[in-house]
Amino acid sequence: SKGEELFTGVVPILVELDGDVNGHKFSVSGEGEGDATYGKLTLKFICTTGKLPVPWPTLVTTLSYGVQCFSRYPDHMKQHDFFKSAMPEGYVQERTIFFKDDGNYKTRAEVKFEGDTLVNRIELKGIDFKEDGNILGHKLEYNYNSHNVYIMADKQKNGIKVNFKIRHNIEDGSVQLADHYQQNTPIGDGPVLLPDNHYLSTQSALSKDPNEKRDHMVLLEFVTAAGITHGMDELYK
């Protein structure tokens, strides 16, 4: 796709999030870079409003799984890469995230190029959380598991539907599940690639910047598309 050509090198990323969870309002600002050749993201996020009212790991899918245009699609799968094909005009990404036995996040993001920078601007609203639950009670460990993110075409809306389940580790050794339902639709009216069913395999590492006084998260992530085999004719070339 034409959009794919915008991702040949390292691309700067800007992320802006405004959130409200159970009436606790907050903002997060992030910057870093993405390299789609390797499916690599390096980002640093800062809570610009003081202390973040929710655990950082609960925002990873909104912040970095928010820029799935940096996923590495192998050559034989490039015609299934909706995310890059929607660029530079970008796409709207909407999600509902259900935390098992707790509340939910609803998010709406616009992901697009502004100049040479890929920008992810998000509004997040969280409701029905227990004040002493795993999320508002800050009981999650500061780490992140690997996940597969399942993608299918949504021809009606000229976009994709995505769903997956995140496993958050809790300090007591148990797990907090979070079910994600995602819809992506193009902002522009140019042609986009509608994929066959496949998935993104994601690995994320969270860390801290020892010199950063503000509440923050440093993230390194690798994302690769998989799940579609080479056609038989490919094998015999």
Rank of each mutant, 00 (worst) to 15 (best):
E5R: 15
F7C: 10
F7S: 03
G9W: 02
V11A: 02
V11L: 07
P12A: 02
E16K: 14
G23S: 03
H24L: 08
K25E: 05
F26I: 01
F26S: 00
S29P: 00
E33A: 11
A36T: 10
T37N: 14
G39D: 00
K40N: 08
T42A: 12
F45Y: 14
I46N: 02
T48P: 02
K51Q: 03
P53T: 02
T58P: 00
V60A: 03
L63M: 09
Q68P: 03
R72S: 11
D75A: 08
H76R: 09
M77V: 06
H80Y: 14
F82Y: 07
F83L: 07
S85Y: 08
M87L: 12
V92I: 12
Q93L: 01
R95C: 01
R95P: 00
T96I: 14
I97L: 04
D101N: 07
K106T: 08
A109D: 00
E110G: 04
K112G: 12
T117A: 06
T117S: 06
T117I: 05
R121S: 05
I122F: 00
I122V: 09
L124P: 00
D128G: 15
E131V: 11
G133S: 11
I135T: 04
L136P: 01
Y142H: 07
N143T: 12
Y144L: 15
N145K: 05
H147L: 03
N148I: 06
V149A: 07
K157V: 15
K157Q: 09
N158K: 13
N158V: 03
K161T: 15
K161M: 12
F164S: 03
F164C: 15
K165R: 13
K165T: 13
I166V: 12
R167S: 05
N169I: 12
I170L: 14
V175G: 12
V175M: 13
A178T: 07
P186S: 13
I187F: 08
P191S: 10
V192E: 06
V192A: 11
L194R: 07
H198L: 02
S201I: 07
A205V: 15
E212D: 05
R214H: 06
D215G: 01
H216L: 00
H216R: 01
V218D: 02
V223E: 02
A226P: 13
T229P: 12
M232K: 11
M232I: 15
D233H: 10
D233Y: 15
L235Q: 13
Y236D: 14
